[in-house]
Design a protein around this nucleic acid. Structure first.
Length: 265
DNA sequence: ATGGTAGCGGTGCTA
């Protein structure tokens, strides 16, 4: 079972590029972030024609997550528990019915800038809510994958220029500690487990020629429950997608690229 | 210290 995560930065702007990548990479499951559309306005037809079921949790203009799956989905759950006042659409879970069922979550963790401030407080509170939700789900002892845009640079080697991020919400010690607390539940960060080499990134800013200078960061991750880690076969980053520009067809890349894992499931 | 780019939606916010 190939499970990918891809922050597309707008489903309207990325519709054709997303379709092209799905046809090329052929993931069984694609977890999307920053769809930026309410569910009734999500253009699902072309993806369904490719054979994907489409489950959505979106809002107007901001945030928005989705799970696309060629395999049947059961028990779709939307929203991260723990704060009834939180209207952000950043969390959707579903059980993917492969050879073995796998619980898959597509998540969009708050950016948190500027820090300090209310947005940073919201980020840290959201991460504690996530820790509690993951701990609850771990009790089932089922294979589970929590993937998405974590907006967390876990280690200095996950940034081309870590000094530029020292005061940023993506790299502050409290952010990385909150991420580590989730890992400490017994989770495996799949890409690092498969490929610990430094200098591999999933995001390059649109500004200042970050892509041309390879000034990237690694912030899109798959966290695996112990039972899913036992099934991990491979992991990779589809870096080339960041350079796929075709003005004649109006194709512009997202600032993130797809990251994928292969499970024996 | 500043401003640089992109998406959505039709202004300014988010990143």
């Amino acid at each position: 079972m190939k499970i990918a995560t891809f922050n597309i930065n707008g489903i309207l702007a990325r519709h054709d590029a997303l379709l092209a990548w799905l046809e090329e990479a052929k993931p069984d499951v694609a977890c999307l972030q920053e769809t930026k559309k309410i569910d009734t306005e999500f253009p699902r037809e072309a993806f369904e024609r490719l054979g994907y079921r489409v489950e959505l949790h979106g809002m107007k203009s901001f945030n928005g997550v989705a799970i696309l799956s060629k395999l049947p989905l059961e028990d779709v759950t939307r929203r991260l528990p723990g704060d009834d006042a939180d209207e952000h659409t950043r969390w959707i879970e579903a059980t993917v019915m492969g050879r073995r069922p796998v619980r898959v979550t597509s998540l969009y963790l708050p950016n948190g800038n500027p820090a300090p401030g209310p947005k940073y407080d919201f980020k840290l509170a959201w991460m504690e809510r996530m820790r509690l939700r993951v701990a609850e789900l771990l009790k089932t002892e089922e294979p589970m994958v929590f993937c998405g845009d974590y907006n967390i640079i876990p280690q200095p080697e996950d940034a081309a220029n870590p000094k530029n991020w020292l005061t940023d919400a993506l790299f502050l010690p409290a952010s990385r500690a909150a991420f580590q607390r989730i890992l400490n539940l017994g989770m495996t960060e799949a890409f690092r487990a498969r490929d610990p080499r430094p200098g591999q990134y999933t995001y390059w800013d649109y500004q200042r020629g970050a892509w041309d200078r390879n000034d990237g960061i690694r912030i899109d991750h798959h966290l695996l429950s112990p039972q899913a880690a036992d099934l991990l076969l491979d992991a990779g980053i589809d870096k080339a997608v960041r350079g796929h520009e075709d003005a004649s067809r109006g194709l512009k890349p997202s600032d993130h690229v797809p990251v994928w894992i292969e499970l024996d499931a």
